[in-house]
Amino acid sequence: MNVGVVTFPGSNCDADARHAAALANADNGDVVHQLWHKDSVIPQGLDAIILPGGFSYGDYLRTGAIARFSPIMKEVIAFANNGGVVLGICNGFQILCESGLLPGALIRNENLKFVCKDVFLKVENTNTPFTNTVKKGSVLRMPVAHGDGRYTASEAEIILLEKNKQIVYRYVSQTGEKNAEANPNGSMHNIAGICNKDGNVMGLMPHPERASEALLGSADGFTVFTGLLAHFQRKQAQVVA
């Protein structure tokens, strides 16, 4: 799969995201591109774009608010609206919300503290390009590291998210129970990750790229990258057939 990872000024998980995508590509030799925030074109034939974690533009004004107007974002938005697969991790999720590709907003954690720890996530929707290799209801372990991760939207929006199965990941306990203790930031309905209505754009606060090798304590996050690979291989097989 041809993946592009955007580097904004202040991104700090871009290299990790490229590394995890390259690991998924190990058997096919496809390249992972670094995309620059000032680029106004994206490489031809790109399958997916990743907006990585970090503190783009120092989180000034609001997280993701300034990155959303980077020249590359015009391309990312057009790519997503054209059905292209876009993944936003942490700050990337915040940028996707600011740009309107995903509904809602991410505000200051309820306890007003930066939270950096492993959390457990229940996979609620496996019918996405990112989660198609895991069983519905699986509990995955990945780290979070953010100060502004409290997912907020209007009640009407939340009802729509639930109805359209747009909630992809929820914070749960190790045994899979959804409760307040398992929620690291006060997100509404324990929401950790959502997708758009078509399922081609997803954002999540936890870091799958930091949990993509057993060496890092968990390889559960790698399912996002193997999911993408499986999705594009299936698509390619359909084209050939």
Partner: peptide, 8 residues
């Protein structure tokens, strides 16, 4: 456009 986010 930029200074505030009407969602929040």
């Amino acid at each position: 456009k930029l200074l505030t986010n009407p969602v929040m």
